[in-house]
């Protein structure tokens, strides 16, 4: 008798529908040089949010 093997484990499951980061996206998320620039940019955005929040 042939052994049944489950091949499709993901389709139509809950986690099949949201976007999943590509290898490139993951690389940039952890690339220290790129993240240093993001650190500066996110901080500038946060400072802008804070400055617009104080009255």
């Amino acid at each position: 008798m042939l052994e049944k093997k489950v091949i499709n484990t993901r389709a139509y499951k809950q986690d099949y529908f949201p976007p999943i980061p590509t290898a490139t996206t993951k690389f940039f998320r952890s690339c220290a040089i790129w993240q240093f620039f993001r650190f500066v940019i996110i901080n500038l955005k946060m400072i802008k949010v804070v400055s617009k929040s104080h009255h």
Partner: peptide, 14 residues
């Protein structure tokens, strides 16, 4: 422009 979300090491440092 002021509402954003981002995943990465930078947020960890912040």
């Amino acid at each position: 422009d002021l509402t954003f979300g981002e995943v990465g090491l930078a947020g960890h440092w912040i």
